[in-house]
């Protein structure tokens, strides 16, 4: 009876319906606004690669030109820094993917005593501020008298990439039917053959995704690299150095190129996934 009372007091009046209409579309509008907000700086970066800037700074719009695009390779050290970044990203992602995949396999497939400790140990690098991470690794190198440079950057990048690889592969591995490996063993495949023929092919997408993630994180990393780079200059370091004296538009050119290439790949993979799902 009390329920009937409550219902009588809140009839579905036209006013409530209007409120719902606004609310429904309010959220959509808000979400679209946020997405726009996310892309504005991207648009600025792209736009300013076409800026006809006079002088060294590139902060005010002074007209449209294709000059920077045509002379993209003219800035000394810029292209080299890109190559350095690519090399570091590739190496560190590769090693981190291998190390991390092994750990993920151990965590998901086996139960052992130090699980909790391992999980914490993997979580900490993600949770640690990059300043602390970078400075502590630097402290190690200083104590051991190891000169900072290319190798130390790679080492530091591998460090933080491992945790992200484990997270990615673990997610993929967990959704894996445990019985598949048992089925393989049931069908006379020993542990190594099972791994080669069943486990590895199945986790490959996850492993690959982890590699890409590590690559992206490494390529874009600034703070940790800053601490451990010595004389080596990566792309972000180049920008940092140039920021004080004036960032040439060619930097925007390459930034735009990177964005367009990677964004296209991402969008492509999304569309491929969608079409594969509808296909049967």
């Amino acid at each position: 009876m009390a329920v009937a009372e409550v219902l009588r007091q809140n009839p579905s009046a036209p006013r409530r319906r209007l409120g719902k209409f606004v609310k429904r579309h309010l959220l959509t509008v808000y979400a679209m606004a946020v997405l726009a907000y996310l892309f504005i700086p991207v648009a600025v970066v792209i736009l300013f690669s076409f800026n006809n800037n006079q002088g060294r700074f590139n902060f005010t719009w002074q007209g449209f030109t294709l000059r920077s695009w045509r002379n993209a390779f003219d800035v000394p050290g810029l292209f080299e820094s890109l190559l350095v970044s690519l090399r570091i990203a590739f190496l560190s992602a590769l090693v981190a993917t291998v190390l991390g995949t092994l750990i993920a396999l151990a965590l998901v497939r086996y139960s052992f005593r130090f699980r909790g400790t391992t999980n914490i140990l993997l979580f900490l690098p993600i949770a640690t501020p990059e300043v602390v991470l970078g400075s502590s690794v630097l402290a190690l190198f200083i104590t051991l008298n190891v000169a900072t440079g290319f190798a130390t950057i790679v080492i530091a990048h591998i460090l933080f990439n491992i945790s992200y690889v484990v997270v990615t592969v673990k997610a993929r591995l967990s959704g894996f039917d445990r019985h598949l490996e048992e089925a393989a063993m049931d069908l006379y495949a020993d542990e190594w053959t099972t791994f080669r023929k069943v486990t590895l092919p199945m986790i490959m997408p996850g492993v690959f995704a982890a590699f890409l993630l590590g690559f992206a994180l490494s390529f874009d990393d600034f703070i940790i690299t800053n601490f451990n780079s010595g004389q080596t200059v990566t792309f972000p370091l180049f920008i940092w150095g140039a920021a004080r004296v004036g960032v040439p538009p060619q930097v925007n050119v390459f930034g735009t190129a990177i964005f367009v290439i990677t964004a296209s790949i991402m969008l492509l993979s999304v569309f491929l996934q969608r079409s594969r799902r509808t296909q049967f």
Binding site: F39, P41, A216, D220, I239, G255, F259, T262
Partner: peptide, 19 residues
């Protein structure tokens, strides 16, 4: 949501200097 983060961190931040 993730795409803007494909632009290098420093470039994104510098863009705010313009904005």
């Amino acid at each position: 949501v993730l795409m803007p983060f494909l632009v290098p961190f420093l470039l994104r931040t510098l863009a705010w200097k313009v904005i």
